[in-house]
Design a binder for these strands. Structure first.
Lengths: 269, 269
DNA sequence: CAGTGGTCTAGACCACCAA
DNA sequence: TGGTGGTCTAGACCACTGA
């Protein structure tokens, strides 16, 4: 009686298992995974099943395969920053903050943000990056995870990092949230401005892929940045992931374009 | 004597063959591909080989697999536009144009843009989208393809669309180019401003994947938009693709941040 | 129900890399 | 040279979809 009513295929179970061993440090960053024949023996599956699990993790950018050598846990990658004209940008922060979900709603979609988890920042790469961007130790930060959904479908994920002392009660437990940034600013009695925002593209890791209902490795558009007080103290780090095929961020530079409909360049339909 | 010195594996050859049939219209958009057993028979390969080819094309977003139904040529997808505060944006256009490659060079990378092809716009989806954005018929547009390279490595691809009448001689043939936008503006005796720019993430199609040396389907950051004359006439459509792991676009909103090094949030190393 | 794509096995040969 | 991952075959059973 093989797989009769299995919840998920073996290669995915195996991929998650390997990912857990990476996360737990059993397979540390940079280390070599067991070879394919070794995994076949350990998990008692065919080599192709092992290869499918490994391919899944490679698409998820969790491991790196070196032909003829072995398979290795990935180190975080260095990236090039391309700065777009830092001089001439003076945004009206509050409204820009608010405009993101609302402009989506304008397009006929009712988007709801919901807190899924509130937890202390730990030792993951993103936690440490957030701490560096905020100029504070990881230990004082709280991480708030949210999902954006239209109806029942999840269309985006956000992670927020902020000092634990600033976390308002309304944002301390899972549940729907009206306007996370405004709630935070009102509760702390501060104004929040953009410090910087950045756009990049990554492949979905296994966790984000599960949440978003997309295959691991599929392209996500990442918008991240730091918000600060008017005197420049960084307060909030945001990292939002949206399936790449589903959204694009548009910057308009003119009041009215000649041939520009409200949504200037959506695909047809 | 099976594959002795084959240039590329059969599943990739098969993937390219199927892609050609899609491009040529032999498999029209929306139509069903032959089933896997049918392809096995036609191409005389094992089903797994067919499946690998099909998986490649699916990662490249060329086809869509519907379980239990069949595999279909993809239709262009509709997308959500998220507009970031269109009111408060008044950029200094010329310098922003120039800043993109130069800011990359500032980071220690010597980036060279090279024209690889100049051809009339045709019937592809991107050609038609460019024509729509420029408000001109496809027939009057020329398409200029360039690659960005650091040393021998290709680190980005750009496609430009512009009216054939405006194409300067310096940009009409393959070869290195100093500053494509400035060359165009000088030659036509016009000033170019940003109309809009947008960021999105897509999976690499087979052609872009070959050029960039990344696997099909791997995440690309897309920055596209229209530049126009000061009175608002759209002149140039740009669509740049950069491997997602390699770059990020950063918008700074403050003159000087407290804890902001020149490249505020690169990964370590 | 028949046909589709999804998963899995067993086994084979190959190209690549380091020692 | 031995071990690694890459490609490919033959065959099996399964889950899903639409008629």
């Amino acid at each position: 009686m093989p797989n009769h009513r299995r919840t998920s295929p073996r290669y995915l179970q195996l991929a998650r298992l390997i990912q857990e061993r990476i996360d737990s440090g059993e397979y540390p960053a940079g280390s070599r995974l067991p070879s394919e024949p070794e995994m076949c023996a350990e998990f008692d599956v065919n080599r192709l099943t092992v290869r499918e699990a490994v391919a899944e993790l490679e698409r998820a950018a969790a491991i790196e395969i070196r032909r003829g050598v072995g398979t290795f846990v990935r180190l975080p990658v260095a990236r090039v920053s391309i700065t777009v004209d830092p001089r001439s940008q003076r945004f009206d922060m509050g409204s820009t903050h608010a405009s993101l979900p609302e402009s989506t709603a304008d397009r006929g979609m009712d988007v709801q943000e919901t807190i899924t988890a509130v937890l202390p920042a730990g030792t993951s790469t993103t936690d440490e990056e957030a701490a560096r961007h905020l100029g504070r130790p990881v230990g004082v930060l709280t991480r708030v995870e949210t999902v954006f959904s239209t109806g029942s479908e999840c269309c985006g994920i956000s992670s927020y990092w902020l000092p634990r002392a600033l976390l308002p009660r309304e944002l301390a437990a899972p549940g729907p949230v009206e306007n996370l940034v405004r709630t935070l600013a009102d509760s702390a009695g501060i104004t929040l401005e953009y410090d910087w925002r950045a756009f990049s593209a990554i492949g979905a890791d296994i966790g984000d892929a599960d949440l978003l209902g997309v295959p691991a490795g599929s392209p996500l558009l990442v918008r991240e940045g730091v918000s600060c007080t008017p005197d420049g103290e960084p307060v909030l780090h945001v990292r939002r992931r949206i399936p790449g095929e589903r959204a694009r961020f548009v910057l308009h530079f003119r009041e009215t374009g000649p041939g520009l409909p409200p949504a200037p360049h959506d695909g047809q339909a």
